[in-house]
Simulated assay, not measured.
Amino acid sequence: MEYRKFGDAYYVRLDRDDEIISSILEICKAEHIASATFSGIGGCKEAQIQTFVPELGAFETQVYSGMLELVSLMGNVISGDEGELISHAHASFAYKDGDEHCLAAGHVKFITVLYTAEIELRPVVGGVIRKKFDPETGTGFWEFQG
């Protein structure tokens, strides 16, 4: 992994076998970034995709592997109650299954790079976004500070 800051944004190149989500969190820790948004593209080899099923109150998980074109990655990093960094990301992957061109998309927990991934990381400037727990849904939502 290599990254540079230009203006207010960080530009990240991830290499073979790097894991994207943990790498983004690592940069945020190293650079003291409390909240940010990110986007990216790349050539990947494995991804865990989740879909929330409201009736079950749980995520359905599937792991994809092989040549996965990361056609879109969008997400954010926010601070939790104890100051821990939390990532929330969604991604779309194109891949082939025999002669068929396929697409898989959803909430992602991890993505492993095959060739490279290119990520833009944009820290929040002038404030912080934290996670506020919502007992009705059992999940957290953005809470703005600053």
Results as ranks from 00 to 15, higher is better:
H88P: 04
L73Q: 01
F93K: 15
I86A: 08
A94S: 08
D99T: 15
N76D: 03
D81G: 08
A91L: 11
Y95W: 03
F93A: 14
H90F: 04
E84N: 12
A94E: 09
A89D: 10
S72W: 08
H90E: 00
L70T: 06
L68M: 06
L85W: 08
S72P: 10
L85E: 09
L70P: 09
Y95F: 13
A91P: 13
E100G: 13
A94G: 06
E82L: 11
E69V: 05
L103W: 09
A94C: 10
V77I: 05
K96A: 11
H90R: 00
L73C: 01
D81S: 07
L73E: 01
V77L: 01
S79L: 05
S79Q: 10
I86V: 09
A94F: 04
E84Y: 08
I78T: 02
I78A: 02
D99N: 15
L70S: 06
G80F: 03
Y95A: 07
E100V: 14
E84M: 09
M74P: 06
I78Q: 01
L85G: 13
S72E: 12
V71A: 04
C102H: 05
F93Q: 13
H90T: 08
S79R: 11
A104D: 07
F93T: 14
V71Q: 02
N76A: 07
A89L: 12
A89S: 15
L85T: 12
L73M: 01
G98M: 12
H101R: 12
C102S: 11
G80I: 03
D97Y: 02
H88N: 13
I86Y: 07
G80K: 05
I86P: 10
K96T: 13
G83Q: 01
L70K: 07
I78E: 00
